[in-house]
Design a protein around this nucleic acid. Structure first.
Lengths: 233, 233
DNA sequence: CGAATAGTGTCTCTGAGACATTATAGG
DNA sequence: CCTATAATGTCTCAGAGACACTATTCG
């Protein structure tokens, strides 16, 4: 990362945007700000002098949603070809994954954010823009480009789901296999076979049985598992 | 992508770097500049005012390697935490894939670039830095961080190889199934079974037989295929 | 005809879906 | 005992590896 020549390079303003997702009632939901001028938008802010990119993502999450720490990974860098006045802007999008209860706590603290269901209109790894709906299934208007960014986030999730641990970032620390399956089904948009899913998950060696069982059910309680990274990963 | 508040945001300089790879003698090779101060580096340059990111990648490829057009995809954005003087720098890395003959033509035009074999010391999707060797298998010293960036590029290639068309970007327009298998084996670092590989590739529906055959072999000539994107992809 | 590689047929094994069955909680 | 869900056993099928065999070109 050393390079010295830099004549005439453009100075640009960096913005960081968050695609913050969680599982709400068995479907993927996104955190949105607004509406501003009738459209909802992904939360974001400018990069501060001396602030690392990843730190900016966590700061925005803290400031705008009141959430302290969450899984975040860089998604894509967009070149806002903005011919309007002012300095040029480059936007770096981060994918943030939250467990449902963390998101619920954030909403209760009332920061004025909206949670919208993400509806993916394409199958498999096709890609493309997605839609967002409110609780009553009515579609919400998104700011220009945000439907595509959300679509890329869903595509990334689908692609990484079965060879990485992203699925666990959407669950609390202890969870049942049924909850894990709900996460996978919501992300992939398909129904999965229960015995096959259990075998596949347990064979990966990522799960550790806690011996505890869920409480408060009027039927046989499920065992609680914990995510345990394999050594060497 | 509309947002209005932007108080106190940092102005940074944007640099674009290329990880340009090709298949040379059945192994993956990277295009490097230098050596400068004893170390080789990934080619790169500052983003020019008004220039789109993707255009900058193609310009750098043209200017520094004399190559007109190539497959390029954004890889990652690095935060050069550079506490030294001058404006802060954010580096956007692009993965560029070339066919071996395009690279050979570039080298013949003599732009002073080095081609180094990429040796991946980890298995599967583990990730981590890679090594680069010259033709005599001696390791070359890389600039700080570049071994990790190259490693991410190899990881991306391995991950996308079997569900996307990246493999074809390393081949000329017409190629044999054996060449395609060589590409896959070099990227994955494993040997593949010939009948199974053929079946898998032909079943994807991405290949179109041209009816032509390779020339100049002292044995049975192989049929030449062409990449044909599936409709709807 | 021999050498070298292209291309194919077939067996087997593994992993996942389908489906049925057993287990365990509350009422 | 009934209901609802957890958890598991088993059959089947599809995809991939292994291996052997046939096909085609040059010399």
């Amino acid at each position: 990362m050393s390079d010295t020549k830099s004549k005439g390079a453009a100075l640009v303003e960096i913005r960081v945007r968050l695609i913050a997702l969680a599982l709400i009632e068995d479907s993927i939901a996104a955190l949105l700000t607004g509406p501003t001028d009738g459209a909802y938008a992904l939360p974001g802010d400018g990069l501060q002098p001396g602030e690392a990119l990843e730190d900016a993502a966590q700061r925005i999450l803290q400031t705008q949603a009141g959430i302290d720490q969450a899984y975040a990974e860089q998604l894509y860098t967009f070149d806002d070809v903005n011919p309007a006045a002012g300095p040029r802007v480059v936007t770096i999008a981060y994918l943030v994954l939250l467990s449902g209860d963390v998101l619920a706590r954030s909403l209760r603290s009332g920061k004025g954010l909206t949670v919208a269901d993400v509806v993916v209109p394409w199958a498999e790894e096709t890609g493309g823009p997605v839609e967002v709906h409110d609780a009553g299934q009515s579609p919400l208007k998104l700011a220009e480009g945000d439907a595509h960014v959300l679509g890329q986030a869903m595509l990334r999730l689908r692609g990484k789901l079965d060879y990485s641990a992203v699925g666990f970032a959407l669950l609390p620390e202890r969870f049942t296999l049924r909850q894990l399956q709900d996460v996978h089904e919501a992300i992939l948009g398909v129904c999965l076979n229960k015995p096959a899913f259990r075998r596949r998950m347990l064979d990966k060696g990522w799960l550790e049985a806690t011996g505890e069982r869920e409480a408060g059910a009027s039927f046989r309680p499920a065992e609680l598992y914990r995510y345990r990274p394999r050594k060497g990963a």
